[in-house]
């Protein structure tokens, strides 16, 4: 989304069967953002969880079915960004966010 490169794969390793997952990648230009802070907000905008992106810019949340906002906090040399994502029971929804 937002021009982030789509050729990089998003790992699905380590996801237990049946989990409802929102995961993705954070990019700055063509480079993955490592150590970025990503929060999961529920449909009311309330904080649900926060993770730090991996060396390859990946993040993962174990959510429930519904609508979510994934928000990257600005700082550490990049601006912020966010994306909306829907996920169904037991599915994996993936999103790419450019900051």
């Amino acid at each position: 989304m937002c021009g982030a490169p789509d050729q990089a794969t998003i790992s699905r390793e380590g996801i237990p069967t049946g989990e409802t997952v929102v995961q993705g990648l954070v990019y700055n230009g063509d480079s993955p953002v490592s150590g970025g802070y990503v929060r999961l907000l529920d449909s009311g905008g309330e904080f649900t969880a926060e993770v730090v992106t991996s060396a390859t810019g990946q993040f993962r949340f174990f959510a429930r079915p519904g609508s979510w906002t994934v928000r990257v906090i600005p700082g550490g040399g990049h601006s912020g960004g966010e994306a909306k994502v829907e996920v169904a029971q037991g599915e994996i929804s993936e999103v790419r966010i450019s900051v």
């Binding site: 237990p16 989990e19 409802t20 999961l40 529920d42 009311g44 309330e46 904080f47 649900t48 969880a49 926060e50 993770v51 993962r60 949340f61 174990f62 959510a63 429930r64």
Partner: peptide
């Protein structure tokens, strides 16, 4: 979080449920 309080989630969403 509201979803844990209501019973929709069992753990914070950075952990398996």
């Amino acid at each position: 979080s509201p979803d844990e309080f209501s019973g929709k989630l069992l753990a914070p969403a950075h952990l398996p449920q």
